[in-house]
């Protein structure tokens, strides 16, 4: 198992489909409910130009207590990965 303190969440805008699943499941880690406003992840979509912005703020704790970061587990587009040793 990956050491929770020695990796970094990486996001690929190219692979991302802007579905916000990561934003939603991240909030579940924090609250055990669904509340994107307290998520560590924020996804903004521009529907007219087909572009989006993905950000991760400093409330991310690498999903301590979970087997793996929930945003990674629930990204079915493989856009979120973990990068070792960059804490």
């Amino acid at each position: 198992m990956t050491s929770m303190s020695t990796f970094k969440i990486k996001h690929s805008l190219e692979k991302c489909y802007a579905c916000k699943t990561c934003e939603l499941i991240c909030s579940f880690h924090h609250t055990k409910s669904f509340q994107p406003s307290v998520s560590s992840i924020s996804v903004e979509r521009d529907h007219i130009n087909g572009i989006w912005r993905w950000t991760l703020n400093d409330t991310c704790d690498n999903c301590q207590g979970e087997e793996q970061p929930l945003c990674v587990k629930f990204c079915f587009y493989n856009a979120i990965t973990i990068e070792e040793g960059e804490e």
């Binding site: 802007a18 916000k20 699943t21 939603l24 529907h47 087909g50 989006w52 079915f76 587009y77």
Partner: peptide
């Protein structure tokens, strides 16, 4: 590209843009 609906792993909605010709600039 595709922009997916909320929390959907399938992603069926295409984003298209016409870059030339009579309808150049049409996108969405």
């Amino acid at each position: 590209k595709i922009q997916a609906c909320y929390a959907c792993p399938v992603g069926c909605q295409p984003f298209s843009e016409i870059n030339e010709g009579k309808y150049k600039g049409a996108k969405g």
